[in-house]
């Protein structure tokens, strides 16, 4: 009898405590600072525009582009098939299905790479995977893919091939600012030839 009353008393007391404290609505970070720092340092989440262009041309279905700029900017220009989730709204529960899945790889981009990196850090700490950031953002994308600079003729073949690919990608993705003198010759080619990147050779000779 006594033990039971004590139990009820304790339960009521604990209930009172839990009724008084504010509800814990924080979303706990799942990555420790160490883990995140390691991820930042390795930089494997950085997607080079060349890779992204290749994926876009191939219409890779596993890639989801996420524009973290404002809806206005998104209206003015956005990459093909991108969806708009402004940085301020990334934690909106409506968008959770986009982050919390294991099928698509989300590539975040903004004008530069600050906003997209901030979004990436928050989402990554919340434990979401399959996240990448477009290296340099739209600015670098425009510079590298949309308006590729012709390398001097004396450049190594790799450079020339890269340029050819970028020029083609620019046309395929609606950039159209590839230098006109060569563009005339291959206007009918919509899909650029993808030059497989060769694996880096190990340094030879030397010490």
């Amino acid at each position: 009898m006594r033990a039971r009353n004590i139990t009820v008393g304790i339960m009521l007391l604990l209930g009172l405590v839990i009724a008084m404290v504010p509800e814990n609505t924080t979303k706990p970070y799942k990555l420790t600072a160490d883990q995140l720092l390691r991820a930042v340092n390795t930089g494997t989440h950085m997607i080079h525009p060349d890779y992204l262009a290749e994926w876009l041309i191939n219409k890779d279905p596993s890639i989801q582009l996420v524009d973290v700029r404002s809806p206005d900017d998104f209206e003015k220009y956005h990459l093909p098939n991108a969806i708009n989730i402004p940085l301020a709204d990334i934690l909106n529960p409506d968008y959770q299905v986009i982050w919390d899945q294991g099928v698509k790889f989300n590539v975040l981009y903004s004008n530069g790479s600050t906003d997209s990196n901030e979004a990436w850090m928050i989402l990554r700490q919340l434990g979401y995977q399959n996240l990448g950031v477009l290296m340099g953002g739209l600015n670098y994308w425009t510079e590298v893919i949309m308006n590729p600079e012709e390398p001097p003729v004396t450049s190594p073949n790799d450079e020339i091939a890269k340029y050819e690919f970028r020029k083609g990608a620019s046309q395929a993705l609606g950039g159209g600012a590839a230098t006109t003198k060569t563009a005339t010759t291959d206007t009918e080619i919509k899909k650029p030839k993808i030059v497989p990147r060769k694996a880096k050779k190990a340094p030879q000779g030397g010490c």
Binding site: V8, M11, L12, L14, G15, L16, I18, A19, M20, E23
Partner: peptide, 15 residues
């Protein structure tokens, strides 16, 4: 209402 307050009400109801 908050989860904690509801829990408190449930405990009172149980008692």
């Amino acid at each position: 209402i908050s989860g904690g307050f509801f829990a408190f009400l449930v405990i009172i109801a149980a008692a």
